[in-house]
Amino acid sequence: MCLAIPAQVVEIDDVSDSGTVALGPVRKRISLALVDDVSVGDFVLIHVGYALNKISPEEAERTLALFGEAELVEELAAAPGGGAT
C-alpha cells in the first residue's frame, strides 16, 4: 500500500509551503506541509502529492552496501577453512 516515490526538491515556495520536485525528467508540484527543514537538492518521498519524509543519503548508501556485504559473508563461508580469521 501507499505508493510513494523518491524525488529531488528543485524549488521551494515558503509562502504556500509547497515546492517542485524532479523525478528524472519529470517535474511535479507538491506540498511540503508535512516536512521540516527541506532544502533544494534534498530527496523526499512523495505520496499523494505530499512530501512525506526526507531520504537520508547516508542511510541509503549503508543499505546498498549491505547488499554487497551479503555476498562477502557468502564468500567467507565458501573460502577454504570456512572463513575463520
Binding site: 523518491p6 523525478l23 530527496f43 546498498l64 551479503a70 555476498e71 559473508v73
Partner: peptide, 23 residues
C-alpha cells in the same frame, strides 16, 4: 532515478539471493 534504480539491480539481487540460499 536515484533511490529507485539501484534498489532494483539484478547483480545485487543475485548476491542477496545467493546469501539467502546459503543461510
Amino acid at each position: 532515478m536515484k533511490y529507485v534504480d539501484e534498489f532494483r539491480r539484478q547483480d545485487l539481487a543475485k548476491k542477496v539471493s545467493r546469501a539467502i540460499h546459503n543461510e
